[in-house]
Nucleic acid binder design. Structure first.
Length: 367
DNA sequence: CTTATTTGACCTGA
DNA sequence: TCAGGTCAAATAAG
């Protein structure tokens, strides 16, 4: 899979520099253009964390260049680096798509207030129309898959607490799969018409790996963004202990490793991902503030805990029965009224002319 | 009582 | 026709 497998350490070194130079830089170009709108802080932090972790892992990779280091170790590091940068790229790419499509494009569902389920007449028509709209959108929504490996033990709440508020709406046995697939949608669907969904399925090959397929971007005003402190303590486990796959994942682990894979958002050319910038790569230094955000094991503590903070916990309690109560929640949340409901990243990817000797010290930009 | 999850039925697209 | 995705009544949990 990797060039150093067959050609040894010497062939591997350029590969390492390839990571540290080109990958980091192309992503940082996006970050440099990052506007600092407050609601974006969480995603910005996530992006920085991903890049920071990538850099740290690349450093580790550099220290494993000795022949004594195992290929497995190096391969693991490379995978994790790819994971970090893929995720960062995803954030950048998604935002770019959102910008080009216009932000508030999420259609709110037709009002379902007062319509009884599966009733006949016009209510049924409206409902069918909405459902068709959902199916239609499903095909056009961006889709990507994360592979999350869970290891260790502890209170990690896993992909169900990825900073967004999800509600499980179904579980299905999948043909040929050993484990059922769980279906989740954004808790704010009925309030704000957010059509983001995700599917969680345990891998057949390695049950410790969860394949999480996200569909659609959140167009809702996730209150976690508004209230997320940078460091919080997770509230006590509130989830019931049940024997479903998705429940089990919550009781696993405090350390996870992300194996992020883009499925549908392919980049057209390598140059898009790896522009031909060059700089002296090895001698980079992270500013303290950035390094302080470095993740341990995959998720930024800030990001993971943001959805678990006490304030968030209650802010995320979205009444799900009845539009009236949903509206009441919006009204009671000033930010929902005054802020744009769109929480997508808001930065540009305009081309930037870079000094060929550009150094990663430019990270100070973000401190 | 309120809210979240479960689960069988229904719907859609291939 | 069937597999996958979604809905919503029933049920569980707090």
């Amino acid at each position: 899979m990797f060039p150093f497998h067959s050609q040894g350490i010497t062939a591997y070194k350029p590969f390492f520099y390839y990571f540290t130079n080109h990958l980091c830089l192309s992503l940082l170009v996006g970050l440099i253009n990052f506007r600092t709108d407050k609601p974006m802080e969480c995603e910005k932090r996530t992006l920085i964390n991903e890049l920071t972790q990538g850099l740290e892992l690349a450093k580790q990779l550099g220290s494993h260049l000795q022949p004594s280091s195992s290929i497995e170790t190096r391969e693991s590091l490379v995978k994790r680096i790819l994971s970090s940068y893929d995720k960062a790229l995803k954030l950048l790419k998604c935002n770019e798509l959102d910008c080009s499509n216009g932000h508030g494009t999420a259609d709110s569902p037709p009002s379902l207030a007062g319509s009884s389920p599966r009733s006949d007449g016009s209510d049924r028509d409206v409902k069918d129309q909405y459902q068709k709209e959902v199916f239609k959108k499903r095909k056009t929504q961006p889709q990507w898959t994360e592979h999350v490996q869970i290891c260790g033990g502890g209170g990690f709440e896993g992909p169900l607490d990825d900073g967004f508020s999800w509600r499980k709406y179904g579980q299905k046995e999948i043909l040929g799969a050993n484990f059922p697939r769980g279906y989740y949608r954004c808790s704010h669907r009925h309030v704000q018409g957010c059509l983001a969904t995700k599917q969680v399925q345990r891998s057949d090959e390695d049950p410790s790996i969860l394949e999480i397929t996200y569909r659609g971007r959140h167009t809702c005003a996730q209150t976690s963004y508004l209230t997320a402190p940078t460091t919080t303590v997770a509230p006590p486990e509130k989830e019931p202990k049940k024997e479903t796959v998705d429940q089990q994942q919550k009781q696993q682990p405090e350390e996870i490793m992300l194996n992020f894979k883009l499925k549908t958002e392919e980049f057209e050319t390598k140059d898009q991902i790896f522009p031909s910038y060059s700089f002296s790569g090895e001698d980079y230094a992270l500013p303290q503030s950035v390094a302080g955000n470095a993740m341990i094991g995959g998720f930024s503590p800030a990001f993971v805990s943001s959805a678990n903070s006490e304030s968030d916990y209650f802010m995320n309690r979205v009444p799900l029965r009845g539009v009236e109560s949903d509206l009441a929640e919006i009204i009671s949340d000033p930010a929902s009224v005054t802020d744009s409901p769109i929480r997508g990243l808001d930065f540009s990817l305009d081309p930037v002319d870079l000094d060929p000797n550009f150094s990663l010290d430019a990270l100070e930009f973000f401190s």
